[in-house]
Protein backbone atom coordinates (compact mmCIF):
# COMPACT_ATOMS: atom_id res chain seq x y z
CA UNK A 1 0.00 0.00 0.00
CA UNK A 2 1.33 3.39 -0.85
CA UNK A 3 1.53 6.63 1.04
CA UNK A 4 -1.10 8.15 -1.25
CA UNK A 5 -3.76 5.91 0.25
CA UNK A 6 -3.83 8.31 3.19
CA UNK A 7 -5.03 10.98 0.80
CA UNK A 8 -8.42 9.31 1.00
CA UNK A 9 -10.29 11.31 3.65
CA UNK A 10 -11.82 8.26 5.27
CA UNK A 11 -8.53 6.44 5.44
CA UNK A 12 -6.89 9.58 6.77
CA UNK A 13 -9.49 9.99 9.51
CA UNK A 14 -9.43 6.40 10.73
CA UNK A 15 -5.64 6.26 10.75
CA UNK A 16 -5.10 9.65 12.34
CA UNK A 17 -7.66 8.85 15.03
CA UNK A 18 -5.65 5.77 15.91
CA UNK A 19 -2.33 7.57 16.36
CA UNK A 20 -3.59 10.84 17.83
CA UNK A 21 -4.16 9.80 21.47
CA UNK A 22 -0.61 8.54 21.81
CA UNK A 23 0.74 11.65 20.08
CA UNK A 24 -1.21 13.97 22.37
CA UNK A 25 0.19 12.21 25.46
CA UNK A 26 3.78 12.01 24.22
CA UNK A 27 3.93 15.59 22.90
CA UNK A 28 2.36 17.22 25.96
CA UNK A 29 4.40 15.09 28.36
CA UNK A 30 7.51 15.91 26.36
CA UNK A 31 6.81 19.63 26.52
CA UNK A 32 6.18 19.53 30.26
CA UNK A 33 9.33 17.50 30.90
CA UNK A 34 11.47 19.60 28.57
CA UNK A 35 10.25 22.94 29.91
CA UNK A 36 10.45 21.95 33.59
CA UNK A 37 13.88 20.44 33.03
CA UNK A 38 15.02 23.50 31.17
CA UNK A 39 13.57 26.06 33.57
CA UNK A 40 14.40 24.50 36.93
CA UNK A 41 17.13 21.92 36.47
CA UNK A 42 19.74 23.71 34.42
CA UNK A 43 22.24 26.16 35.85
CA UNK A 44 21.97 29.86 35.07
CA UNK A 45 24.23 31.02 32.28
CA UNK A 46 27.31 32.79 33.58
CA UNK A 47 26.69 35.73 31.34
CA UNK A 48 22.99 35.84 30.55
CA UNK A 49 21.70 34.66 33.93
CA UNK A 50 18.30 33.01 34.04
CA UNK A 51 17.03 34.98 31.03
CA UNK A 52 18.60 32.43 28.73
CA UNK A 53 16.00 29.89 29.79
CA UNK A 54 13.39 31.40 27.54
CA UNK A 55 15.33 29.63 24.81
CA UNK A 56 13.26 26.52 25.64
CA UNK A 57 10.19 28.27 24.29
CA UNK A 58 11.80 30.58 21.78
CA UNK A 59 13.87 28.16 19.71
CA UNK A 60 11.29 25.35 19.33
CA UNK A 61 8.52 27.76 18.38
CA UNK A 62 10.75 29.59 15.90
CA UNK A 63 11.71 26.24 14.40
CA UNK A 64 8.09 25.17 14.05
CA UNK A 65 7.08 28.55 12.65
CA UNK A 66 9.35 27.94 9.68
CA UNK A 67 8.63 24.22 9.41
CA UNK A 68 4.89 24.87 9.41
CA UNK A 69 5.30 27.11 6.38
CA UNK A 70 7.47 24.46 4.70
CA UNK A 71 4.81 21.87 5.40
CA UNK A 72 2.17 24.17 3.88
CA UNK A 73 4.38 24.60 0.82
CA UNK A 74 4.74 20.84 0.36
CA UNK A 75 1.02 20.30 0.94
CA UNK A 76 0.19 23.03 -1.58
CA UNK A 77 2.45 21.43 -4.17
CA UNK A 78 0.80 18.06 -3.58
CA UNK A 79 -2.62 19.69 -4.03
CA UNK A 80 -1.58 21.38 -7.25
CA UNK A 81 0.00 18.29 -8.73
CA UNK A 82 -2.20 15.48 -7.43
CA UNK A 83 -5.41 17.24 -6.35
CA UNK A 84 -5.74 15.41 -3.04
CA UNK A 85 -8.25 17.31 -0.94
CA UNK A 86 -6.71 16.16 2.33
CA UNK A 87 -3.48 17.83 1.34
CA UNK A 88 -5.13 21.21 0.72
CA UNK A 89 -7.06 20.93 3.97
CA UNK A 90 -3.89 20.02 5.88
CA UNK A 91 -2.23 23.17 4.55
CA UNK A 92 -5.23 25.16 5.69
CA UNK A 93 -5.15 23.44 9.09
CA UNK A 94 -1.45 24.13 9.58
CA UNK A 95 -1.59 27.87 8.94
CA UNK A 96 -3.16 29.03 12.24
CA UNK A 97 -0.77 26.76 14.16
CA UNK A 98 2.14 28.23 12.23
CA UNK A 99 1.04 31.79 12.83
CA UNK A 100 0.71 31.08 16.57
CA UNK A 101 4.21 29.63 16.65
CA UNK A 102 5.50 32.71 14.84
CA UNK A 103 3.76 34.93 17.36
CA UNK A 104 5.24 32.96 20.28
CA UNK A 105 8.70 33.22 18.73
CA UNK A 106 8.28 36.98 18.28
CA UNK A 107 6.96 37.60 21.79
CA UNK A 108 9.52 35.39 23.53
CA UNK A 109 12.19 37.01 21.39
CA UNK A 110 11.07 40.45 22.57
CA UNK A 111 11.00 39.31 26.20
CA UNK A 112 14.49 37.87 25.80
CA UNK A 113 15.72 40.89 23.93
CA UNK A 114 14.75 43.30 26.67
CA UNK A 115 17.38 42.21 29.26
CA UNK A 116 19.91 41.15 26.62
CA UNK A 117 19.92 44.05 24.20
CA UNK A 118 18.15 46.57 26.39
CA UNK A 119 15.23 46.88 24.01
CA UNK A 120 11.98 45.03 23.36
CA UNK A 121 12.30 45.31 19.65
CA UNK A 122 15.17 45.87 17.30
CA UNK A 123 15.03 45.80 13.52
CA UNK A 124 17.40 42.93 13.52
CA UNK A 125 17.31 40.74 10.37
CA UNK A 126 16.04 37.65 12.15
CA UNK A 127 13.33 39.45 14.06
CA UNK A 128 12.34 41.36 10.96
CA UNK A 129 12.19 38.20 8.88
CA UNK A 130 9.88 36.65 11.43
CA UNK A 131 7.67 39.68 11.37
CA UNK A 132 7.47 39.39 7.58
CA UNK A 133 6.75 35.66 7.89
CA UNK A 134 3.94 36.60 10.27
CA UNK A 135 2.49 38.93 7.62
CA UNK A 136 2.69 36.18 5.01
CA UNK A 137 0.77 33.87 7.33
CA UNK A 138 -1.89 36.52 7.88
CA UNK A 139 -2.36 37.03 4.13
CA UNK A 140 -2.53 33.29 3.52
CA UNK A 141 -5.15 32.75 6.23
CA UNK A 142 -7.14 35.79 5.11
CA UNK A 143 -7.28 34.46 1.55
CA UNK A 144 -8.58 31.10 2.76
CA UNK A 145 -11.24 32.83 4.80
CA UNK A 146 -12.29 35.19 2.03
CA UNK A 147 -13.13 32.66 -0.68
CA UNK A 148 -16.43 30.80 -0.62
CA UNK A 149 -15.76 27.86 -2.88
CA UNK A 150 -13.35 25.44 -1.16
CA UNK A 151 -11.63 24.20 -4.32
CA UNK A 152 -11.09 27.73 -5.60
CA UNK A 153 -9.72 28.71 -2.19
CA UNK A 154 -7.39 25.70 -2.19
CA UNK A 155 -6.08 26.55 -5.65
CA UNK A 156 -5.54 30.23 -4.97
CA UNK A 157 -3.93 29.75 -1.57
CA UNK A 158 -1.60 27.15 -3.05
CA UNK A 159 -0.47 29.59 -5.71
CA UNK A 160 -0.06 32.26 -3.04
CA UNK A 161 1.95 29.86 -0.87
CA UNK A 162 4.30 29.09 -3.75
CA UNK A 163 4.83 32.69 -4.76
CA UNK A 164 4.94 33.75 -1.10
CA UNK A 165 7.71 31.25 -0.37
CA UNK A 166 9.88 32.69 -3.11
CA UNK A 167 9.27 36.20 -1.84
CA UNK A 168 9.83 35.15 1.77
CA UNK A 169 13.29 33.89 0.83
CA UNK A 170 13.95 37.05 -1.18
CA UNK A 171 12.85 39.12 1.81
CA UNK A 172 15.19 37.18 4.06
CA UNK A 173 18.15 38.12 1.85
CA UNK A 174 16.93 41.68 1.42
CA UNK A 175 16.56 42.13 5.15
CA UNK A 176 20.02 40.71 5.76
CA UNK A 177 21.43 43.16 3.30
CA UNK A 178 19.43 45.99 4.81
CA UNK A 179 20.60 45.64 8.37
CA UNK A 180 23.27 43.35 9.80
CA UNK A 181 21.94 42.80 13.25
CA UNK A 182 22.35 41.93 16.87
CA UNK A 183 20.89 38.47 16.84
CA UNK A 184 23.18 35.56 17.58
CA UNK A 185 23.56 33.09 14.78
CA UNK A 186 21.74 29.83 14.76
CA UNK A 187 23.76 28.37 17.59
CA UNK A 188 21.85 25.23 18.37
CA UNK A 189 23.11 22.91 15.70
CA UNK A 190 26.63 24.15 15.81
CA UNK A 191 26.44 23.23 19.44
CA UNK A 192 25.44 19.73 18.54
CA UNK A 193 28.50 19.45 16.35
CA UNK A 194 30.91 20.94 18.86
CA UNK A 195 29.37 19.35 21.90
CA UNK A 196 30.78 20.04 25.32
CA UNK A 197 32.71 23.20 24.55
CA UNK A 198 31.01 25.82 26.62
CA UNK A 199 32.15 28.85 24.69
CA UNK A 200 29.88 31.80 24.93
CA UNK A 201 28.17 31.67 21.52
CA UNK A 202 27.25 28.03 21.68
CA UNK A 203 24.55 26.26 23.57
CA UNK A 204 26.36 23.72 25.70
CA UNK A 205 25.40 20.13 26.34
CA UNK A 206 23.78 20.73 29.67
CA UNK A 207 21.36 23.18 28.07
CA UNK A 208 21.08 21.26 24.86
CA UNK A 209 19.50 18.05 26.16
CA UNK A 210 16.30 19.67 27.49
CA UNK A 211 16.21 21.91 24.41
CA UNK A 212 16.27 18.85 22.19
CA UNK A 213 13.39 17.37 24.21
CA UNK A 214 11.47 20.62 23.76
CA UNK A 215 12.11 20.78 20.04
CA UNK A 216 11.02 17.20 19.45
CA UNK A 217 7.90 17.54 21.57
CA UNK A 218 6.98 20.86 19.91
CA UNK A 219 7.28 19.15 16.54
CA UNK A 220 5.10 16.26 17.72
CA UNK A 221 2.62 18.73 19.19
CA UNK A 222 2.50 20.53 15.86
CA UNK A 223 1.87 17.25 14.05
CA UNK A 224 -0.95 16.21 16.36
CA UNK A 225 -2.55 19.65 16.14
CA UNK A 226 -2.43 19.57 12.37
CA UNK A 227 -3.86 16.04 12.28
CA UNK A 228 -6.66 17.08 14.60
CA UNK A 229 -7.43 20.27 12.72
CA UNK A 230 -7.27 18.51 9.36
CA UNK A 231 -9.85 16.06 10.67
CA UNK A 232 -12.08 18.97 11.61
CA UNK A 233 -11.60 20.56 8.20
CA UNK A 234 -12.45 17.29 6.46
CA UNK A 235 -15.69 17.01 8.43
CA UNK A 236 -16.58 20.65 7.77
CA UNK A 237 -15.90 20.16 4.09
CA UNK A 238 -17.99 17.03 4.12
CA UNK A 239 -20.89 18.82 5.78
CA UNK A 240 -20.64 21.57 3.19
CA UNK A 241 -20.66 19.11 0.32
CA UNK A 242 -23.74 17.38 1.75
CA UNK A 243 -25.59 20.67 2.06
CA UNK A 244 -24.66 21.63 -1.49
CA UNK A 245 -26.05 18.30 -2.69
CA UNK A 246 -29.28 18.83 -0.81
CA UNK A 247 -29.70 22.19 -2.47
CA UNK A 248 -28.95 20.68 -5.85
CA UNK A 249 -31.49 17.89 -5.38
CA UNK A 250 -34.21 20.20 -4.09
Amino acid sequence: MSLWDYANPKKFLTTSEKVMPALWVVSIAGMVIGLVWGFFFTPDDFRQGSTVKIIYLHVPSALMAINAWLMMLVASLIWIVRRHHVSALAARAAAPVGVTMTLIALVTGAIWGQPMWGTWWAWDPRLTSFLILFLFYLGYIALWEAIEDPDTAADLTSVLCLVGSVFAILSRYAVNFWNQGLHQGSSVFRAAAVAGTDTEEKVSNIFFAPLLVCMISFALFFIVLVLYRTGTEIRARRARALMARERAQA
Partner: peptide, 8 residues
Protein backbone atom coordinates in the same frame (compact mmCIF):
# COMPACT_ATOMS: atom_id res chain seq x y z
CA UNK B 1 -23.54 8.76 -0.50
CA UNK B 2 -22.37 5.93 1.62
CA UNK B 3 -18.74 5.98 0.75
CA UNK B 4 -16.51 8.72 2.09
CA UNK B 5 -15.03 9.36 -1.30
CA UNK B 6 -12.00 11.34 -2.31
CA UNK B 7 -13.74 14.10 -4.21
CA UNK B 8 -16.28 15.19 -1.60
Amino acid sequence: LDDFDEAF
